[in-house]
Nucleic acid binder design. Structure first.
Length: 273
DNA sequence: CGGTGGACCTGCTGGC
DNA sequence: TGCCAGCAGGTCCACC
């Protein structure tokens, strides 16, 4: 479900609600996520105060004053929100963090592809899930120049490259498709056959689409909800994703769906060369 | 290096 | 109306 803009939307919603709050208890109802939740999590977090809420790629990081940072990933269907106590439910609520103001941080995840782990502060950057992540696409370093250089000696299709978190971290299926449409680049084009100028277009398009999506509170196609339980409204601004057979808003040609690396790719065969 | 296919899971939808 | 194949905002691994 959530790509960078959705995770960032959740981060921005959680930060003011969690910062300065203490965790009074953690209730783990289902520990079988992508990797089983460590049984020591509740004990280690009891009494810890949240000092900050950060994001790296599609991971959320809840920093605490107890020497531990909570690493969270939402997988495809994860939801994370703050609720009033005893508030109505959604199904598949696997973890509840009880806070000192009486509210609760709740984690739900139907497919259980998500992840919750603790990292010792000083080992933050060596954690196996974080080590090896590539550049943040909204950082200044992600330029056409950088993309051009990062792809020298490679031959994979550009869409697969954009989704490779070891190169660029946080772009998923929706925004890879949308950025390439905006840049006018065919998703199948091998990276070594893309020129410097086109890489500039790709860099600009990535930044623009991610920033606009964050402004819109993310994309809700099926089940994405932010930290307050509200849907994002960027879905109406998607130009190709999930629009197979619809006509391209720019040229009128039918939008096509193909499969790359087992994932659906949507593009306009006329606008994207 | 790349590409494919599958694994992990549950839930929804579109076509018959 | 009911059933079921196919597909889903993500990773990770084995294999060619």
């Amino acid at each position: 479900m959530p790509e960078l803009p959705e995770v960032e939307t959740i981060r921005r919603g959680l930060a003011p609600l969690l910062t300065g709050r203490r965790v009074v208890a953690v209730e783990v109802r289902e520990r079988r996520l992508r990797q089983p939740i460590d049984a020591r999590v509740p004990g280690r977090l009891r009494g810890a105060m949240v000092t900050g809420v950060k994001r790296r790629s599609k991971y959320l990081l809840l920093e605490t004053d107890a020497g531990w940072t909570v690493l969270l990933h939402l997988g495809m269907t994860g939801q994370l929100w703050v609720s009033e106590p005893g508030r109505v439910s959604r199904p598949h609520q696997h973890v509840v963090f009880k806070l000192d103001d009486g509210r609760e941080l709740r984690y739900a995840d139907a497919r259980r592809f998500g992840l919750i782990d603790l990292i010792r502060d000083r080992e933050l950057h060596e954690h196996p899930r974080l080590r090896g992540l590539g550049v943040e696409p909204l950082e200044d370093g992600m330029t056409g120049e950088w993309l051009h250089r990062a792809t020298r000696g490679r031959r994979k299709p550009v869409k697969n490259f954009l989704m490779d978190t070891r190169a660029i971290a946080g772009i998923g299926n929706i925004y890879a498709c949308e950025a390439l449409f905006r840049a006018g680049v065919n998703p199948r084009r091998p990276v070594h056959r893309i020129g410097r100028r086109s890489w500039d277009d790709v860099a600009v398009a990535i930044r623009a689409v991610l920033e606009e999506a964050i402004q819109a509170g993310g994309t809700t196609l099926r089940d994405f909800l932010n930290a307050e339980g509200n849907a994002g409204y960027f879905a109406v601004s998607l130009r190709v994703y999930d629009r197979k057979g619809e006509s391209c808003g720019r040229c009128g040609t039918n939008i096509r769906r193909i499969v790359q690396a087992g994932r659906s790719t949507f593009y306009c065969p006329r606008c994207q060369k």
